[in-house]
Design a protein around this nucleic acid. Sequence first.
DNA 1: TAAAAAAGAATGAACGTTCATTCATAAATT
DNA 2: AATTTATGAATGAACGTTCATTCTTTTTTA
Lengths: 195, 195
Amino acid sequence: MRISDKHNKIIQAAIKVFAQKGFFSARISDIAKKAKVADGTIYLYFNNKYDILISIFEEEIGKIIVEVKRLIDQEEDPRKMLEIFAMEHMRMIRDRRNLAEVLQMELRQSNKFMREYRNTKFIEYVDIVSKIIHKGQEMNIFRKDVMPGVVKRAMFGALDETARLWILSPDNQYTIEEAAQQISTIFLCGIEQKS
Amino acid sequence: MRISDKHNKIIQAAIKVFAQKGFFSARISDIAKKAKVADGTIYLYFNNKYDILISIFEEEIGKIIVEVKRLIDQEEDPRKMLEIFAMEHMRMIRDRRNLAEVLQMELRQSNKFMREYRNTKFIEYVDIVSKIIHKGQEMNIFRKDVMPGVVKRAMFGALDETARLWILSPDNQYTIEEAAQQISTIFLCGIEQKS
DNA sequence: TAAAAAAGAATGAACGTTCATTCATAAATT
DNA sequence: AATTTATGAATGAACGTTCATTCTTTTTTA
C-alpha cells in the first residue's frame, strides 16, 4: 500500500467524522476506526488533530479551485462566469456534502483556534468572484459603483448560507440548482449596467 | 444584589469569552473570572456550559428581533423595509461585535451539538426578510418568480458573510454601513419588478 | 535461492493533562 | 437562628498523544 493511500484514507475518514460531529467533538479514535487504522498510525501521517483539519482545507479546496477555474476560463462573458461559479459551488456542496459541512463549520469557528493559519486556499476561491466582477466592470457590463470586495463576499455568503440550510433539510421547496439559478439571477440583475 | 444581576453578569461575561475563544475552548473558569463570581456560582444560574450558550441565543436575539421589528413596522414600502433590515443588521454587528461573533460561530457549528435545539429565535429573525419579500410581491413591487425562501437565506447570508469578514479586519475599504447599502441595493435591483 | 538481518510501518494500551461539575463549607440575608 | 446564596478546592471522566512492542517488507548474506 502506497503511503498516500493511508494518508488519504485518514483524510477521507476525518472529513466524514468532522462533518458528523464537528472538529472538537470528533475523537481521534473515531477517525482511526473509520479509516481502519490504529490511533497511533494517524500520528505517523499528521502532527496532530488540528493538522488533519488544515490538510483537509489545503488539499480538498485546492482540487475544487482547479476544477472551478477550469470551467470559468472556458467562458468569455462575465455574466456566464458568475452563473457558472454559483452553479458549480452549489453542485459541489450537493455532491460532496461532508466536505462542504466541514468547510462551512470550521471556516466560521476557525478564526478562534486557527488565528495564525491564513486560509489562503479559501481566499483564492472567493477571489474568483471578485475577479469576475472586476472583469465585468472593465467590459462595461457591470456597474462601476459596486465594490468587487463587497460583491464577492455577498455572493459567496448568499450561496453558502442557502446551501447550509439546504444541507440541514434537503427535502425542500427547491433544488440546490434552482437556488443557484435564483441567486445568480438576483446578483446579475443587481449589478448589471443599465444601458 | 438581585438574582437577575448575577444571571446577566454571567451572560455578558460568557458572550465575551465565547467570542474570544469559541465555545469549546472557553473555560467555565474564564467566564467565572470575567463575571467576578466563583466557578460554582455559575451552576446556580445555569444547568451547564451548553445552557449558557442557549440562553445567549434566547435572550439576546430576542431583544434584537423586537428592536428590528419595531423599526420595520414603521415603514410601508417593502423596499425601504429591506434597506432597514440590512442596515440594522450590520449596525447591530458593529455595535455588539462580541454577541455577533458568538451567534455567527455557534450557528454554524450548532447543527452538530445542538441538533435537538431548534433555534426558533433565529428562524424568527430571518423570517423577517421572507415576510418583506412576500409583501413586496403582493404589492407588485418585487418579481414573483423569486422565491422568498431563497431570498431570505441569500440576503441573510450575504449580510452575514460580509459582516464576518469585516469583523476580522474592520480597517477595510468600506464601512459596514456602506456594505449594507451596497447589498440592499444589489438585492433590490435584483428582485425588482421591471415595469 | 533461502535464510538472516535490518528497516520501516503499524499497533493500541497507558499516560498525563485538562476541565466541567460537585459539594462541603462559609458568608450574607432575612 | 435559619435560610438562602456563594465559594473554590476536590473530583473523576474524557481524550489527545506517546512509545514500547509487533508485524511486514526489503535488503543482505551465504
